[in-house]
Amino acid sequence: MNARLLPYVLILPVTLFLGVFFLYPFVLVAKLAFVGSEGLSLENFRDVISYWKFPISLKNTMLLAAVVVPVQLALALLMATMVNRMEKGRDLVLYIWTIPLGISDLAAGIIWLAIFEQSGFLNSMMTGLGLSDGPVNFLSYQNPGIVFLAIALAEIWRATAIMLVILVAGIGLIPKEYYEAAEVFGASPWQRFRRITLPMLRPSLQTALILRVVLAFEVFAVVAALGGTLFPVLMGEIYAYQFDLQNTNAAAALALIVLAISVVFTLIILRALRVPKGATI
């Protein structure tokens, strides 16, 4: 076959597939969102935004992302640097730390449900230690703080691994000589981390943050398993519009809002962590 055509033949299936199942649905979702009872309008957006649950679910989603992502970033950085200087047992520790990578958000929600539910392990432990007289219903409307905590913990537990993997891979790409050079020039471990690891890790940090932030706005099943209706989030509302209210147009409008938020944050991260041309390893 003609060597000039071959690459195009090879990428054609993916391009077609993404065209039909990624780009085209975009157009569709936008169309659905802007179609009102009489032609094109912002009606759906008005309806969605003026619904009383919208501000709460927006606030909850953002708050959750704002709490979870920084904790995950710090934790993943800590774990990645710790494992980087490990000699023995590195593979085992990495295997254990990356287990949650393969666990679905629904399963993660159920796992933490086992801990926080009324007859769960947290209550059992607290009663066993004499800290409380009987089982407390943590996941109820009386304890919104604990509901939030449970959801945040489940998210941190589940999705730190993805950042860890990206960061460990990124740190692995930084040549050892830079650290040795820095050490010769008298940099302390903390300075080496600040002045070498962090700046050189920028491309990986970028990827990790984008993936995580976008996923954080998609939070859904963890919340469904732990909070149910106690903690409305945007994705849950979209699901409710689609299923319970059978209002696809409103669901599409809300989906477009989530998409917009995701894109805005992606752009912010790209800009904040951009790597100057020629400054790559």
Binding site: P25, L28, I210, V214, Q242, A252, V258, L259, S262, T266
Partner: peptide, 16 residues
């Protein structure tokens, strides 16, 4: 594709 919450695309695809 990374910058978008892809599961959302299930909505229009459901109609399709």
């Amino acid at each position: 594709t990374r910058a978008f919450p892809l599961p959302l695309l299930a909505l229009p695809l459901a109609v399709l």
